[in-house]
Each structure stands twice: as C-alpha cells, then as structure tokens.
Nucleic acid binder design. Sequence first.
DNA 1: CGAGCATGGTGAC
DNA 2: TCACCCTGCTCGA
Length: 277
Amino acid sequence: MPEGHVLHRLADELNRHFAQRVVRVTSPQGRFADEAAVLDGRELLGAEAWGKHLFVAFDPDAWIHIHLGLIGTLTLTEPEPVRGVVRLRIGTDEQVADLRGPQTCALIDAARVATVRAGLGPDPLRADADPDLARRRIHASAKPIAALLLEQSVVSGPGNIYRAEVLFRAGVDPMLPGKRLPRTVWNRIWDDLVALMTEGVRTGRIDTVAEEHTPEAMGRDPRVDDHGGEVYVYRRTGQPCLVCGATVRATPLAGRQVYWCPRCQRPGRTGVRRVHR
DNA sequence: CGAGCATGGTGAC
DNA sequence: TCACCCTGCTCGA
C-alpha cells in the first residue's frame, strides 16, 4: 500500500541486491510467464522510481514497468518457497523479490518508458524535479487543491496520506481552488513534501507530527496508524486535532476521503505558518 | 465463510 | 461519478 516513498525504497533495495547481476525471472502465477521467459537469466541493469511507478531495466530497450496500485506489494526476502499469488519473482541464490497484486506489471520498451514519464508531474523525491511545473498546473486550475495534489500529472508520488498531512501542516483549506493558492504557500508545501517524503524513504513510514506536537510533548498516548506512522489528520475522523482540539473531519472528494481540521484549515484559508519542522 | 476495507488508477457513461 | 481491477487482512455472523 504505497505512496511514492515506498517505490523509491524498493528501487534502492532492488539495486542493492540485483543491479548488475544475472537474475532468475519467473511468474509463479503465470500471468507474466511469457515476458519473464524473455528476461530469465539475463543481467538486471538497475531499477528506478518515478512517482509511484517503478522501472526495472534489463536492456536499454527492455524494462519491467511496475505499478502497485492500492493493494500491490513487492517483498524482498531470502529465497523461500512461493506463498500466495506471485505475479513476478526476481531472484538470485541470496535474495528474491516477489510481486503480488500489482495494478501494472508489463514488459515495455524505452519509448513507452518515456511516454509514462512524460505524463508525470515533478516527483519531490527526484533531484531533477521542477516544482514550478506543478505550480503552473495548479494555478491553471479551479479544482480544489486537495484534488490537484492527487493528480500524478501535477505532482507524482504523494498519495492520500501525504496530501492530507501537507495541507494540514500548511494550514490550507482542502477545497481551495488551485488558482487561489498563493505561490509562497505552494513553495512551502513543495519543500514540505521533499522533506517529509525524504524522511519516509529513510524510515519506511509516514511521520508528519512536529516535535512540539508529539505524544511526549502533549502528554497523550502514542497513536500510530496502521500505515505505521504518527500523523495529524489522516484517518483521525472524529478525534481531536492535535493542535487546536477541534474535531477532525473527512470529506469525500472524487471518490476518496480528504481528512482535515475545520479550524486549522477553515474554508477559504490560503495558508498559515503554524507547524514548524 | 462472506463482506468490507485499504496509502491507486482506469475506463465507461 | 461510478464500476471495476488486483490481493490479503479483519471483522461479524
């Protein structure tokens, strides 16, 4: 269940164990069998993440394109018998990577890689990202900023957790039209995404709560969500805001829940510097 | 045992 | 805006 930081971690892990090594490529489930046979026994050149997309190169013109979707997993372990439904296994004598339930697992050429990348907005985890490209798309739209932050053509990598958390940390109304988001506030949100997601790559969790609001500082019990991190509003509907005490709300937007604090992110609010790193 | 749910995305209407 | 896809886990009957 991945936002972009997970894919970057996985790219790092794949490179650590498999880059420039000859690997076995199989499809225990069978749905990727023909493609796996083409790659089996070849050298894996390297892996790279762009937003939530993962690309694994076996040749400059032969890549596995992986997208985990909502429920996909890619797990690295020591060699072990196949458990469950495994679409793709990449392995050596020391390590195997098992892919389950992906939204996408396809063998594609360099042109297709370029096409996929061209459809993606800047990724806060990539040094070559251009945040002003995202800003221009946001300022060209009347859609709510909370909707725009989930469009991978605007920004690639953040998902429902980072979206809710950076809007809370910036003090922005989720329903604010993109064109009304001040440039300085966007710059702050981008810098926050870079910092939070970089930390997420390091730790493998999403933690967004500033030191001053930690359970220790506030004298409350630690509350770690199922995703394995400490957050302000994500999936905290009905609970008190960690900053102001108002009741955290959830609003459906384009089929997904947006979590927010009705006081810290009052309707119309375009940003307030309140949460410091 | 089935229903419902999940950090995502697509395609049809 | 909705149905649907992919899998595994939890919850209630």
